[in-house]
Design a protein around this nucleic acid. Structure first.
Lengths: 249, 249
DNA sequence: ACCAAATTCATTCAAAAACAATCAAATGCG
DNA sequence: CGCATTTGATTGTTTTTGAATGAATTTGGT
C-alpha cells in the first residue's frame, strides 16, 4: 500500500463519515500506528482535516470564506441531504425513473428498499445502481460527453414504452413564473417525457437553482413536487401553488 | 517489449486504476527497476502522470478511486497487445460495434482515428469512449450487474436498427469443431446479432480462450477473423478455415 | 472532584524500501 | 562495422516505516 493510496482512503472516509479513528485506520490499512499518525499529520498540514484525540475529523467552516474545494464539499453536502430525503420516498416494488445529473446521483447511495426497478438515462447512475444489485434499465441512445447522459430520438423512443411510479428529475433553474428549466433541449425532452410517464414526479434541486431561468422549460410549478435543501431563500410565495419538501441539514 | 509499448501499458493501467507501483510494473513488464523509473520519468515529463514514492498516480481527479484492485498483470498485458492490433484495423468514418468485456475495453485506449461512431453494449466502454470524444451510442436495456453489459429484448430491438462496418466481439471459448462460445445466452444473442449486422466481424480473445467450450455458440470458425496474442499454442489446424491475426509480444 | 488505569500521543532510532546517479553491456539502426 | 540509444547492475543517499520510550490525555470508579 503506497503512501498516496493511504491518503486517498483516509480522505474518502472523511468525506463519507466526517470522522476517522486511528485504530480503525491501522487495521483497515494494515500498517502501524506511527504511520497513520504521520499520515494524519501530513493531511492536516495540507488542510484536509483536523486532528483530534483518537483520530481526525473533517474541517467544515460555515461562516468563513470557502476555498474552491470546500465549496464543492458544501455542495456535495447539500446534494447528500437532498438525496437522502428523495430516497426515503421510494417504496417497495416501485418502478422509478432516475434522471442523469449529480443531484440524482446522490439519491442512489441512500436507496434502502430492495426489489425496485430503476430506469435511468445516466451512465454513471446505471453503473452504480447495478453495483448495488438494483434492477436497472438504461435508456439507449447517443451519449452526451459532458454529462454522460443519454439523449436523442432513440432514448425518447425507448422511454415511450415505460410507465413509472415516481420520477426524480434534476434541473438547472427554478423560477416562479417560468417554471423549471435546463440549458439543453435534448435533455429537456427526456425530462418532459419522463414526467409525463410517471404517476408522481419530483424535481431535485439545491438552493443554487432557485430564482434562475435557463433556456428550455421542463415543467411548470404545478404537478410536480420539489425537493430542495433548507436555506435562507424565502420560499413562501412558491409554496402557494407548489409542493416543496425541504431537507434539514 | 518496445519502449512505446511499455508506455502504453502504463498509461492503460493508470487509466484503469489511477495508481501504479514500480514493483508491480517491474514484474509485469519483465524489466528492471531502472527502466521503469526512466519510463515514469518520461511519462511525467509528457504530463501523463505524477510520480510518487513507490510508483506513480494519474494527474487528473485527485481523490477518487481508493481501492486499486490488482488484476492479473500478465492478462492485462495480453489484452493490451490484442487491443492495439484490433484498434489498428479501425479506419476513418467507420461505424463500429464494440462488445462489452475487458478485452474489447483494451481496444479503446488505442483508437487513433477521429470521426468514427461506436455502438456498444458495455457501460464502461461507453463512458470511456465519450471521455475520448468518440461519438458513442449505448444500446438500451437491462444491465447485467456482473459484467455491466446491456442484455435483453430492448437491446436486441435497438440493435436491429443498425448496420456496422466492423464488429469487435469478445468470447469465452474457441473450439475447432464447435466454434466460439460464451456462457450467457442473453449476451450470446447480442453478439450473434451484432455479427450478422456487420460487414466484417472480429473475435478478440487472449490465449486462455483457445480450445475451450462454453454453453452457447456465438459463431462458427468461418466468416469471422480472430484476433489473439502470440502464444505457444499451435494454431496451424485452425488456420485452414479461419483467418487469425496474431499480435506479437 | 480526585486518583488510578488505560489510551493516545510525540519523539527518537534503526531497519527496510525506494531513490538518483553512474557506468558498462546489450541492442537497434544506418 | 560504428554510432547512438536503451538497458540492467551497482553505488551511495534519501525516504519511509515500525518499534520503543516516556509524556499527555481521557476514562471510570469512588
Amino acid at each position: 500500500m503506497l503512501t498516496d493510496e493511504r491518503y486517498s482512503v483516509i480522505r474518502n472516509l472523511l468525506n463519507k463519515s466526517g470522522i476517522v479513528k486511528t485504530q480503525d485506520l491501522m487495521s483497515m490499512l494494515n500498517c502501524s500506528e506511527s504511520t497513520i499518525r504521520r499520515d494524519l499529520d501530513h493531511l492536516e498540514e495540507q488542510g484536509y482535516l483536523k486532528r483530534i484525540h483518537g483520530g481526525a475529523k473533517r474541517i467544515y467552516h460555515l461562516d468563513e470564506e470557502l476555498t474552491a474545494q470546500e465549496k464543492s464539499f458544501k455542495n456535495t453536502q447539500e446534494k447528500t441531504v437532498i438525496g437522502k430525503l428523495a430516497a426515503s420516498l421510494i417504496e417497495e416494488n416501485d418502478v422509478i425513473f432516475l434522471d442523469a445529473g449529480t443531484t440524482t446521483l446522490a439519491i442512489i447511495d441512500f436507496i434502502k428498499v430492495g426489489n425496485i426497478t430503476v430506469v435511468t438515462n445516466g451512465v454513471q447512475h446505471a453503473s452504480l445502481l447495478s453495483d448495488y444489485q438494483v434492477d436497472t434499465i438504461l435508456l439507449g441512445g447517443k451519449i452526451k460527453a459532458s454529462t454522460k447522459a443519454m439523449v436523442g430520438s432513440s432514448s425518447l423512443r425507448n422511454l415511450e414504452d415505460y410507465r413509472f411510479d415516481k420520477a426524480f428529475i434534476g434541473i438547472n433553474g427554478i423560477d416562479q413564473e417560468f417554471g423549471c428549466t435546463t440549458p439543453d433541449p435534448e435533455e429537456a425532452a427526456i425530462k418532459k417525457l419522463a414526467i409525463a410517464a410517471s404517476a408522481s414526479s419530483y424535481i431535485v434541486a439545491d438552493q443554487s437553482k432557485w430564482n434562475k431561468v435557463n433556456f428550455v422549460r421542463v415543467c411548470d410549478m404545478s404537478n410536480v413536487t420539489i425537493i430542495t435543501n433548507h436555506s435562507d431563500i424565502d420560499l413562501t410565495s412558491f409554496k402557494e401553488n407548489t409542493t416543496i419538501l425541504e431537507a434539514e441539514k
